[in-house]
């Protein structure tokens, strides 16, 4: 049926109103708030970019920025390499594909809160299961307080995050694999393409759409990581696992320094948008070229 402009606008009204009131308005308000000195219920006068200037000299923010970027790079690279490998393995094992995918996806159904507690238990320094496994393998000397050491805490958190989302990433690559026309794969096999050569010249270009989706999702997801460091280490030891989201939450809801916390959140938004646009532009162009 032909929708008139009026009925179209009316149909779109409820969703747009809900979205405008509870997302767009608070976001715009957040941008303004970050330019004030609001602290709890006091303050609120305009101070320009002072919060941002302060943030760029704040050792806590700079440490969080570094932690967030390191965490993101590690998670995005490792999770996608492993996810792609697992997806290719799933694709080539039709007999056990469904059961393997079910198992691999189970961690992604858990809340981040639950994953945090589960892995805190696994890493626990006194009689924890990870140490027990390492004992059994004769690796006593490599044991350490995984979450209590500034060198390992952030990576220990990254491992639990990747454990949670490995199946998720692999599922996306797998669905791309399954959408490749059978005839193409057969032709490649007839031409004698196998192993890594086949992967590089046949699979890799055809997997471009899922690569775009996965890189974008894992980048956005790990840039905003909050629950894991909040629960597993509370930002410690010695600020080594503070992420930008963690700092925003602490500044805003622990110290009630609303304006400053929101300014840090805007930095996170800017980073997310810049990285997101760059990734999408580059990857979409690659998709077209492929």
């Amino acid at each position: 049926m032909r929708l008139t402009t009026r009925s179209a606008a009316l149909l779109m009204l409820p969703a747009t109103a809900l979205y405008a009131l509870f997302i767009l308005y608070p976001t715009a308000k957040g941008l303004l708030l970050s330019l004030t000195d609001a602290h709890g219920v006091i303050g609120g006068s305009f101070i320009g970019l002072d919060n941002y200037r302060q943030a760029f000299q704040d050792p806590q923010v700079l440490a969080a920025l570094k932690n967030t970027l390191v965490y993101t790079v590690v998670v995005v690279v490792v999770q996608n390499v492993l996810g792609l490998a697992v997806a290719s393995w799933l694709y080539n094992s039709p007999a056990v594909r469904t059961i393997a995918r079910t198992g691999l996806l189970m961690p992604a159904m858990m809340a981040l809160v639950a994953v945090s507690y589960l892995w805190s238990f696994i890493y626990s320094p006194v009689g924890g299961p990870l140490d027990a496994v390492m004992n059994a393998l004769g690796l006593h000397r490599l044991e350490m307080s995984w979450l209590g050491d500034t060198h390992t805490a952030l990576m220990a958190i990254a491992v639990s995050y990747m454990w949670m989302y490995l199946g998720y990433t692999a599922t996306i690559y797998l669905s791309n694999y399954l959408s490749i026309p059978q005839s193409l794969m057969e032709a490649a096999a007839l031409d004698g393409a196998r192993g890594l050569a086949r992967f590089r010249h046949i699979d890799w270009p055809l997997l471009a759409p899922s690569l775009t989706v996965n890189l974008t999702l894992s980048t956005i997801g790990s840039l905003r990581v909050f629950d894991l460091p909040f629960i597993m280490t509370d930002g410690g030891p010695a600020n080594s696992t503070q992420t930008l989201s963690y700092v925003v939450f602490q500044d805003s809801f622990h110290d009630f320094h609303f304006a400053y916390g929101t300014a840090v959140a805007v930095l996170l938004l800017v980073i997310t948008v810049v990285v997101g646009v760059l990734l999408t532009t580059f990857l979409r162009r690659r998709e077209v070229a492929a």
């Binding site: 608070p26 308000k29 941008l31 708030l33 956005i220 905003r224 805003s252 929101t262 959140a265 938004l269």
Partner: peptide, 11 residues
């Protein structure tokens, strides 16, 4: 793409 923390305080 907007992280929830940008809007959480105003919300």
């Amino acid at each position: 793409t907007v992280p929830v923390f940008v809007m959480i305080t105003p919300l």
